[in-house]
Design a protein around this nucleic acid. Structure first.
Length: 571
DNA sequence: GCCGTTTTCGGCCCGACTGTTTTCAGTCG
């Protein structure tokens, strides 16, 4: 899929236009179109071939022509022209916090700064402070921002943000005068990665709370420190923003700071069309300027004639339209999950015994658990020979005799080999209750080859679930090339489930693909792939993805009661 | 550049904070 490439080039055009101080709405139009294509669950090449580019919201005639040009020739003339007239290092300066297009233009125009290095030199030589509306403080701040930028990290995993959020919340809860307090932003929307952390609170004496926040032991640097808000850096690179508001505005402010930006813009447009202006403080009636205050978020949506929209859906990807038409999904909840169908034991590379995994699963309230150890090809993970797998099936049977309150299903995570064949015979697979088939090797093959491998596994009458279907590892390894549409079609046709792997660094399928899979009629299965007892707890991260994918209980294989599950598994 | 139950032209979300001003532009979220 070329979606990523097309989106990147449009994002870059937006940046280059920004440096040219182009009409800001034109800039927004380019980044909107880029985002729409980035989030598109369909192959952009297919959409283009079928002349449907302009049906993508945010893509009009001009951008459609540019996308078409790119897909035909590999380049966009307008993009090349922008590149030619902009010094190559200039766009990077937009990443320096506090520098926007106006300032960069000024620095380029007056001091001939064209890249990061020249910016740093100009600041050190105190040439910046002599420019209009600049001064010693701004100059020093630019140097600080450059240092921060140099040791920046990419967005952190949701699971890595979670303990930081919890620590800060419990610190703040211990302060006098704190009333409501909650995390907002992308963390509340449960995105797979989090950029910075937003905390909201109501308090009797805001100034004291903000001051205490800025002086927390973990704080390494204070970026902003006002009477009602502060921004700090903790853990070297994580920015945390605290905002304190009056109690009566807690609903609007929580709505606002939960985002996403795109969701909020759409909501504010709708407010205007209904005669209101929405801000984080109130809903203002335009006719007489009177303010309506909401301390509960659901009342903000209610005042606009909408049902409550769960935070995980707030990406302006159709949730507002669905809310208006009363067809929001009833999202899956963690308590709907009745079992885990992909865990490992110490028969292969897991750390715990079958009994230990089963008892831990029972303590989580599960009805069943499938122990799916590796097959021989994955030698590094202690893959089981066919004989050992038969022995393990026996061991599962005796475990079940000993256990009360949970059923262990005997399973295998069978490798889909480079030639598309499975690593066990069909006879042996037929003796397993649950078969997860996954790709571990040959990740560099062509899209056609890998798609073919997956589809032949899907079509195997013994395969119940495809494990971590795209192979991506967040921030480390891209998904292998895959024709998703064909995979979804095959999975829907054969009743094979696709996995949402809950391992925090995988989350595979991701939200975009899992939603497209659901729409293609595919049933999903959320599994932890746990290799020890603690990892069973990562189910919540998979549930996050499922909720962001609009999944309901009925869409998820392991929300079925034990009996119904058995009737659906291929046997 | 996009878009249309007011519109094919004229709109396009809203407010806090900072550093520089002497009333505000720029940036951020």
């Amino acid at each position: 899929m070329k979606n990523r490439e097309v989106a990147d080039i449009l994002y870059q055009m937006a940046e280059l236009l920004e440096l040219k101080a182009e009409n800001r709405f034109k800039i927004i139009a380019f980044s909107k179109a880029a985002r729409a294509i980035e989030m598109l669950p369909e192959d952009i090449t297919t959409v283009c071939r079928e002349k449907r580019l302009q049906s993508i919201p945010g893509v009009g005639k001009a951008i459609a022509m540019k996308v078409e040009e790119y897909l035909k020739t590999g380049r966009i003339t307008a993009h090349q022209e922008l590149l030619a007239e902009t010094p190559p290092g200039l766009a990077e300066l937009l990443q320096i916090s506090g520098l926007g297009p106006k300032t960069i233009f000024l620095l380029h125009d007056k001091l001939n700064v064209t890249n990061l290095e020249e910016l740093e030199t100009a600041a050190r030589e105190h040439r910046i402070r002599r420019l209009p509306r600049m001064g010693p403080t701004r100059e020093a701040n630019i140097l600080k921002s450059i240092q921060r930028y140099k040791k920046r990290s990419t967005r952190i995993l949701y699971s890595a943000a979670e303990p930081v959020v919890n620590e800060i919340l419990s610190f703040l809860r211990g302060l006098d005068g704190i009333e409501h307090i909650t995390a907002a932003g992308s963390f509340r929307r449960a995105k797979e990665t989090v950029g910075d952390i937003d905390i909201l609170a109501t308090a009797t004496r805001p100034g004291e709370i903000v001051a205490a926040f800025s002086r927390m032991p973990a704080v390494q640097e204070v970026l902003v420190n006002g009477p009602t808000k502060a921004s700090v850096i903790v853990n070297d690179t994580i920015q945390v923003d605290l905002r304190i508001v009056e109690h009566r505005s807690f609903g609007t402010v929580l709505q606002y700071f939960t985002g996403s930006k795109e969701h909020n813009v759409k909501l504010r447009q709708i407010s205007l069309s209904r005669g209101y202006s929405l801000s984080e403080y109130s809903l203002t009636r335009l006719s007489d300027g009177s303010d309506l205050f909401f301390d509960r978020e659901e009342d903000v949506y209610g005042a606009l004639g909408l049902p409550f929209i769960p935070p995980e859906l707030r990406e302006d990807l159709g949730e507002i339209e669905a809310a208006m038409q009363g067809r929001l999904p009833r999202l899956l909840e963690q308590k709907d999950v009745r079992g885990d169908l992909h865990v490992h034991s110490n028969w292969s590379d897991g750390k715990a015994t079958i009994m230990e995994m089963a008892r831990a699963a029972r303590d989580l309230g599960y009805e069943y658990i499938a122990v799916c150890d590796h097959s021989p090809t994955v030698g590094i993970a202690g893959g089981l020979s066919p004989e050992r797998l038969e022995e393990k099936i026996g061991a599962v049977a005796s475990a079940n005799e000993e256990l009360d309150g949970i059923t262990v299903l005997s399973g295998a995570e069978v490798d889909i080999k480079a030639d598309g064949r499975l690593d066990y015979t069909d006879d042996l697979l037929a003796r397993c209750d649950v078969v997860v088939a996954s790709v571990h090797m040959g990740l560099q093959q062509s899209e056609r080859a890998i798609t073919g491998r997956l589809i032949s596994a899907i079509e195997n009458e013994n395969v119940d679930i495809i494990g971590h279907p795209t192979g991506r590892i967040i921030g480390q390894r891209e998904a292998y090339d895959l024709d998703m549409t064909s995979v979804f079609e095959a999975a829907a046709r054969t009743g094979t489930a696709l996995e949402i792997n809950s391992y925090p660094g995988r989350l595979d399928l991701n939200d975009v693909n899992a939603r497209a899979a659901k729409e293609a009629g595919v049933r999903m299965c959320i599994n932890t792939d746990a290799h020890d007892v603690e990892q069973l707890l990562t189910m919540k991260y998979g549930v996050n993805v499922a909720r962001r994918s609009w999944l309901e209980r009925k869409d998820v294989l392991n929300s079925l009661p034990h009996k119904e599950l058995l009737s659906l598994l291929k046997c």
